[in-house]
Simulated assay, not measured.
Amino acid sequence: MIPTVSDASALTLVPVDRVPRPGLLALRVAPEQQGFVGRVVDLLADAQSRPSADPLAFVLGDQVIGLCCIEREPRTIAPIAFDAPAVGLRGFFIDARWQRRGLGRRALSLLLDTLKQRHPAVRWLVLSVDEGNAAALRLYRQAGFVEGAQRYHGGSAGRQQFLLLRRLDP
């Protein structure tokens, strides 16, 4: 059964420790996205192993529909110095059952708004993305991300477009 989006304004972003673990572990991506995202259990374990990580869940009504992780140490994503305070973004995705409904765009917008509230001093959001992940690149570019100067060639899913940046206005 395909879930419906009854009220997209009910989309919230909450720490994963406030969401039932079975809901998180039920999240999936399409098979062709698996190499870009990885397994949810691994994403959660990785986030929980780093004190600088802030794993967050996207919740629509009472349904967990996605996941992301804010990294307060952006050098773990992009080993360069930033000219202003920055955070990184890891593992952003919407469950396959909820894709193609505009929720990725809404979730990313919610994330950007949340960052401005929770981290008002931060001026940059940094992420890396695989060059073959056309849907993610399109989403990030539409949201105002621009390509950084560096590339990373050793991604597990292939060559990475190492750095995308999004200025967070004060």
Rank of each mutant, 00 (worst) to 15 (best):
A81T: 15
D95A: 09
A96Q: 15
I94V: 10
L67K: 00
Q99D: 08
P85D: 10
G88N: 03
V59S: 03
E71R: 01
I94Y: 00
P85R: 13
A96D: 11
R75N: 06
R101V: 07
R106H: 05
C69N: 10
R101W: 06
Q63K: 14
R105Y: 01
I65P: 11
F92T: 00
G66Q: 01
Q63F: 13
D83M: 00
L89W: 01
P79A: 14
G91T: 11
R72F: 08
A86H: 08
R106Y: 00
R75D: 12
A81Y: 06
I77A: 04
I70K: 00
F58Q: 02
E71Q: 14
G88T: 09
R90A: 02
I80C: 13
C68N: 05
I77T: 10
C68A: 12
E73H: 08
P85I: 10
R101M: 14
R72V: 08
L60N: 14
G66C: 06
F58P: 03
G91W: 04
R105K: 09
P79V: 07
W98H: 11
L56E: 13
T76I: 10
R97N: 13
A84R: 08
A57E: 12
F93L: 04
F92M: 04
E73C: 07
D83H: 03
G61V: 13
I70H: 00
L103S: 08
A78D: 15
P55H: 05
P79I: 06
W98L: 11
G66P: 05
I94T: 03
P74H: 04
R72T: 11
R90S: 01
G88Q: 07
V64I: 15
A107R: 04
A57L: 09
G91M: 07
R101F: 11
D95F: 10
R97A: 14
V64L: 12
A84P: 07
L56R: 15
L60K: 12
R72M: 11
G91C: 09
G102E: 04
V59M: 08
L67N: 03
C69W: 00
C68G: 02
A96L: 06
P85H: 12
F82I: 12
A81R: 15
A57Q: 11
G66I: 03
R75Y: 07
G102V: 06
G61N: 14
G91N: 10
D62S: 15
D62Y: 11
G66D: 05
P74T: 06
W98S: 09
F58N: 03
L89I: 01
L56Y: 09
A81W: 05
